[in-house]
C-alpha cells in the first residue's frame, strides 16, 4: 500500500516538474521580448539581455506611442476590428438563422453551395483580380467586405440556434410577432453565448490581420498595426525612419532607444490588447469550437 502511495507521489512530482517546464517553454519566448522592450536600446545592442532588463526604461514604448503614423495605423486597425466584427456578426447570424430553419425552401441547395468552399478560399490570384474589378483595392472596405461572412462561423451559430425550441418560436408567432421581431427579441438574446464567442474570435482575427493590408493596399493611410510592425522588422530603412521620427518627437530619450528595441516594444504593443481580452475569450473558446465541431 505504502509503495503505491510513494509511486503516485513520485508521479505527482514528476507531473509538476513537466508542467513547470512546459510553462517555461510556452511563456519564455514572450518574456524575452518583454525584457528586451524594457531595456535601454543602445545598451541592448551590446547583447546578452535575455532574462532581466539590464538598464530598465519605458523609452521604447514612449517612442512607438508618440509616432503619428503608428497612431494612424491604430485607428485603421481599431476601425476594422470594431466595424468589421459587428458587420460580420450581424450578417453571419442573419444567414445562420435562416439556415437553422430546416423547413426553409431550398436550404439544401444553399448549404451545398456554401460547403463547396469550406476548405478553400478562391485562391489568392483570382481574389486579387476580383477585388480589383470590384474597386476594393486601396479602400478601407477591402478589410470589411470580404470578412462579412464565414462558413465556419455560420455553422457554429446555426448549430446553436437549432437548439432553440421551435415551440417557443411558434407561440411567439401565435402572438403575432413577425420574423424580424422574433429574430431581434428572441433569437439574438438567446444566442448570446455563441455570439459572444464569434465576436471575440472575429475581433482577434481583425486585430491580427496583416496579409490583406499587405496585398490589397498601398497607401500609408490604410496601414494596419500589424503591417506597420512587419515593415519595421523587415525593412531597415523603415525602422530607421521610425527611429528618426521618435528622436525628433522625444529628443530627451535619444540615448535610450534604438530601432531594435523599438521593434520589440511594437511587438508588445500590438499583442497587449489581445492579451487583455484573453480571459473573456478563453471562457467562450471551447464552447464555440465544440459546438462547431460536433456538426462540422
Amino acid at each position: 500500500m505504502s509503495s503505491t502511495r510513494f509511486g503516485s507521489r513520485a508521479f505527482d512530482i514528476f507531473n509538476v516538474l513537466v508542467m513547470i517546464a512546459v510553462v517555461i517553454v510556452t511563456l519564455g519566448p514572450f518574456w524575452f521580448t518583454i525584457v528586451g522592450s524594457l531595456n535601454n536600446g543602445l545598451d541592448y545592442l551590446r547583447g546578452g539581455v535575455y532574462f532581466w532588463p539590464r538598464e530598465f526604461t519605458w523609452a521604447n514604448y514612449r517612442a512607438v506611442l508618440v509616432d503619428s503614423t503608428i497612431y494612424q495605423a491604430f485607428m485603421v486597425t481599431g476601425f476594422r476590428t470594431i466595424v468589421g466584427t459587428l458587420i460580420h456578426v450581424l450578417f453571419t447570424s442573419l444567414i445562420a438563422y435562416g439556415m437553422s430553419r430546416t423547413y426553409l425552401i431550398g436550404r439544401n441547395f444553399y448549404m451545398a453551395v456554401i460547403m463547396f468552399t469550406m476548405f478553400f478560399g478562391g485562391g489568392l490570384i483570382p481574389t486579387y483580380i476580383l477585388y480589383k474589378d470590384l474597386g476594393l483595392l486601396n479602400t478601407v472596405w477591402v478589410y470589411i467586405v470580404p470578412g462579412m461572412f464565414s462558413v465556419w462561423d455560420m455553422i457554429i451559430i446555426m448549430s446553436f440556434m437549432r437548439t432553440i425550441p421551435d415551440a417557443l418560436l411558434e407561440s411567439a408567432r401565435m402572438d403575432g410577432a413577425g420574423e424580424y421581431r422574433l429574430f431581434l427579441q428572441f433569437i439574438l438574446p438567446l444566442s448570446k453565448p455563441v455570439l459572444a464567442a464569434i465576436t471575440l474570435f472575429n475581433g482577434v482575427y481583425h486585430w491580427n490581420s496583416y496579409f490583406d493590408a499587405m496585398m490589397f493596399t498601398t497607401k500609408d493611410s490604410l496601414q494596419t498595426v500589424q503591417l506597420f510592425l512587419m515593415r519595421m522588422v523587415t525593412s531597415a530603412d523603415f525602422a530607421q525612419g521610425v527611429n528618426a521620427s521618435a528622436l525628433a518627437n522625444i529628443p530627451s530619450q535619444a540615448m535610450k532607444i534604438s530601432p531594435e528595441t523599438m521593434k520589440l516594444a511594437m511587438m508588445m504593443v500590438v499583442s497587449i490588447p489581445i492579451i487583455l481580452i484573453y480571459p473573456f475569450l478563453q471562457k467562450y473558446f471551447v464552447k464555440g469550437i465544440m459546438i462547431g465541431s460536433i456538426k462540422g
Binding site: L94, I95, Y97, G122, P126, I129, M148
Partner: peptide
C-alpha cells in the same frame, strides 16, 4: 410570405459569399 422573409435573412450573406468566395473559386 414566411419563406420570402427567410430568404431575406439569407440573401445578404449569400450574395457576399457568391461574389467574394465562390466567384474566385470558379475563375481560378
Amino acid at each position: 410570405k414566411e419563406h420570402l422573409v427567410w430568404a431575406a435573412f439569407i440573401a445578404p450573406a449569400f450574395l457576399i459569399y457568391t461574389v467574394i468566395f465562390l466567384g474566385p473559386v470558379i475563375t481560378s
